[in-house]
Amino acid sequence: MTGSFAVSKHDDGAGVIRLAVRGEIDDEVSDALAEIVANAAAQPGVTMLVIDLEKVRFLAAAGIRALLEGRAAALQHGRAYQVVNPRGVVHGVLATTGLLSLFQTTVRRAPASRARLGS
């Protein structure tokens, strides 16, 4: 693994937990990611898990497996599951494998450019 891997947990309110993932999801970290998602899914009061991949630069086959295992854990606990903000190669991998729709994947749009003052 060449990139640092980290996951930060955010309470977005109303039972929504967002797990912001950073780095590369490969063989070395995929089991850890699957476990983190499963643990979040098991917490009381959680209604939805959102896996934010905005800062993920690489997604290996093992990473796809981790995301699928996370989805299974969420569904087992009756939680909604969504993957958001895949970029570049990660978006391409999810699109090629047909997982964008399975994960109800959304991509946050870049903010519109601001109008010039005085225009």
Rank of each mutant, 00 (worst) to 15 (best):
T2E: 14
G3W: 09
G3S: 14
G3D: 11
G3F: 09
H10N: 14
D11V: 10
D12V: 10
D12G: 05
A14I: 09
G15R: 09
V16R: 10
R18S: 05
R18M: 04
V21N: 00
R22T: 07
G23L: 01
G23R: 00
D27Q: 13
D27G: 14
D27C: 14
S30G: 08
D31N: 11
D31V: 09
A34Y: 02
A34N: 06
I36E: 08
V37E: 00
V37C: 00
A38N: 08
A40N: 01
A42I: 07
Q43H: 08
P44I: 07
G45H: 05
D52H: 04
D52T: 01
L53E: 02
E54F: 04
R57N: 10
L59S: 00
G63L: 01
G63V: 03
R65E: 05
G70T: 02
A73W: 02
R79H: 05
Y81P: 01
Q82M: 14
V83P: 00
N85A: 06
P86H: 03
P86C: 06
H91K: 12
H91V: 08
G92E: 09
V93G: 07
A95D: 15
T97W: 12
L100N: 01
F103S: 07
F103V: 08
R108M: 11
R108S: 15
P111K: 03
P111L: 03
R116M: 13
L117Q: 11
G118Q: 07
S119N: 10
